[in-house]
Design a protein around this nucleic acid. Structure first.
Length: 570
DNA sequence: GTTGTCTGCCC
DNA sequence: ATTCTGC
DNA sequence: GCAGAATGGGCAGACAAC
């Protein structure tokens, strides 16, 4: 398939909002791609070159892509940057270039994929220049519409309203004429989370053969179960019936694959993140795993958390996450020893356990992990009483955890946020754990938005606290606003706009706003935590900040002060 | 050798 | 991570 | 309710620039 034609389909998709019609259009693309091109073509639709667990990335963000555009069109970098800010989309920047720059409609999807692969693989000294030049040349060698989508692919988002789940729908429609095979495809995707390969199999071999193996393969990551969110214990029990409560740790999710006989590369342990990135080198602790495991192979699901071995206390997330590294691992291990709280088992001794009920998997888990200091089978508490559940949630919060994760007692292991087998409790009662109080912050400036937000002219705003005469930044806020809120806020902030940063604002360069506003508008901001910050001038920042409401009743004197922040941190 | 910028990926 | 919205 | 697309703080790593 010519890339030119591929891009024409994407151009059509851009105008469709109906999910059914989007799916149909994706089906057309899948059917038109040559068998050799399907894998690569589908990855490109995802704005990737390969599944996450291969580690193959473009390493080209919007700044570098803009440099490529600046180079290919011989336009000043600042102008290209301004155009991107104005349009909010890298593809639209390409479309705005002179048409005669672009020539050629000859490349196939397969050829474009290969060329992008070359660009992605440049590394080492001088590689950034090579990538920029390589991308610029590729863009110039195609028609403008194609170039628009290639630029978006490199950035990682086509922004056309479909992603991997829609590809699964499309595979079902392509082979069955309807979505009836979607469930089966979900199951297959769960144990082979590679849309490209799955698409190739389904389109090439037919559904039956492609879906013949739904077993977990040790060494191949499984799409992990994630939690839905609900507000109240009563609601949860009503939905789930008999449940188990577990502690929610603020660490990093690890899926551990152990093969006693060893993988092809000679190692016995592979680990994967929540997003299926391989991170086997991060955890030297696990080399002792053969001693702990009863079995020839297992796949475990757990949360790794830094622990202070003297006090046996859990470390904060900011400490734990320093373990996400590939250099200086030995020193990091000494500074932040990890404990692995195991809460599920997905396969053992060649048997896939995903469809077994939770309680059975937990029984198997108990038999599988011998007692040791590093890998701990997480405690669970069975119940069917909302009052009890609420009590455990409160208890876990008091103990310093993130609250409770609630699991359906007989629920199977579902991929992603599907179904209602795993739920975390939103702390809406306003007690400990989550930040108890909201903050009243001054809006200091705003940033132009991308995509849909570009239409509002505003994507996020900078918010600050008061310290004497000064206003210090403590958060950027870009969520919690409805479309209507965005429109209204834009109007109001433009009335307050000033040409230069007000002198009482202290703002690090990295947070420079696109538009500054004078100190007038106060907003109530909710957050989960106050953390130490390397960039916000308050010295601290809000974790997961979101707009709660506008506070027109307040002025500068009502804005939260640094003193109050210090109090809140205690 | 150090610092700054950008990117990817944890939450 | 949180949140909003079209289907 | 699903799926997608906006957006946050902040960590390490890779390069580039100094």
């Amino acid at each position: 398939m010519l890339f030119h034609e591929f891009a024409a389909h994407l151009e059509r998709l851009e105008k469709i909002s109906s999910r059914l019609l989007i799916t149909d259009e994706v089906v057309v693309i899948l059917k038109k791609l040559a068998e050799k091109e399907i894998e690569g073509g589908v990855y490109l639709l995802m704005g990737r070159l390969a599944p996450a667990y291969t580690g193959l990335e473009f390493n080209l963000g919007w700044k570098m892509i803009l440099r490529a555009i600046s180079q290919l069109a011989n336009i000043d970098g600042d102008k290209v940057m301004a155009d991107f800010k104005k349009k909010g989309d890298i593809g639209d920047v390409v479309t705005g270039l002179p048409e005669n720059l672009f020539e050629g409609e000859k490349l196939t999807v397969g050829e474009v994929y290969e060329k992008l692969l070359v660009v992605a693989r440049y590394s080492g000294e001088g590689s950034q220049e090579k990538k920029i030049t390589g991308l610029a040349e590729l863009l110039l060698s195609m028609d403008q519409i194609s170039a628009k989508f290639v630029a978006r692919m490199v950035l990682g988002h086509l922004r056309l309203g479909f992603s991997d789940k829609t590809i699964l729908d499309a595979l079902s429609v392509a082979s069955e004429g309807n979505k009836s095979a979607r469930r089966k495809l979900d199951e297959a995707y769960q144990v082979l989370p590679d849309v490209g390969l799955l698409s190739k199999k389904v389109m090439g071999q037919g559904l039956a053969r492609a879906l013949s193996n739904l077993e977990v393969e040790v060494g191949v990551p499984v799409i992990p179960a994630l939690c839905q969110r609900l507000n109240h214990a009563a609601e949860i029990i009503e939905k789930m019936g008999e449940v188990a409560a577990e502690r929610k740790y603020d660490g990093t999710r690890v899926q551990i694959h152990f093969l006693r006989a060893g993988f092809a590369d000679g190692t016995a342990i592979k680990t994967f993140t929540r997003n299926l990135e391989e991170n086997s080198l991060m955890f030297p602790e696990l080399t002792q795993m053969p001693l702990w495991i009863n079995g020839s192979s297992v796949v475990l699901d757990c949360e790794a958390v830094g622990v202070d071995l003297k006090t046996d206390k859990i470390m904060p997330f900011q400490m734990t996450i320093t373990r996400k590294r590939k250099h200086g691992i030995t020193q990091a291990q000494a500074a932040v020893p990890l404990r692995f709280f195991v809460f599920d088992i997905l396969a053992r001794n060649g048997e896939t356990l995903l469809s077994k009920p939770y309680f059975e998997r937990r029984e198997i888990l108990d038999e599988t992990v011998h007692k040791n200091k590093i890998m701990v089978v997480d405690e669970k508490y069975k119940m069917d009483d909302p009052v009890k559940l609420h009590g455990y949630h409160e208890q876990f919060l008091k103990e310093g955890f993130e609250g409770a994760v609630v699991k359906k007692w007989d629920g199977n292991y579902l991929p992603g946020r599907q179904g209602w087998n795993w739920i975390k409790i939103k702390e809406s009662e306003g007690s400990s754990g989550k930040l108890a109080d909201t903050l009243d912050l001054m809006i200091m400036g705003y940033y132009k938005g991308r995509g849909k937000r570009n239409g509002f002219g505003l994507g996020a705003f900078l918010a600050g606290v008061r310290k004497g005469e000064k206003v210090l930044t403590i958060a950027k806020v870009g969520t919690g606003l409805s479309d209507e809120d965005f429109r209204e806020l834009k109007k109001r902030l433009d009335k307050l706009a000033v040409s230069a940063k007000p002198k009482e604002y202290e703002v690090s360069e990295a947070l420079t706003a696109d538009v500054w506003v004078r100190p007038k508008l106060v907003v109530e901001i909710a957050a989960d935590e106050i953390t130490k910050s390397p960039v916000h001038s308050a010295g601290v920042a809000l974790r997961f900040p979101r707009l709660a409401k506008f506070r027109d009743d307040k002025d500068l004197t009502g804005v939260t002060t640094m003193n109050e922040i210090e109090q809140m941190r205690k």
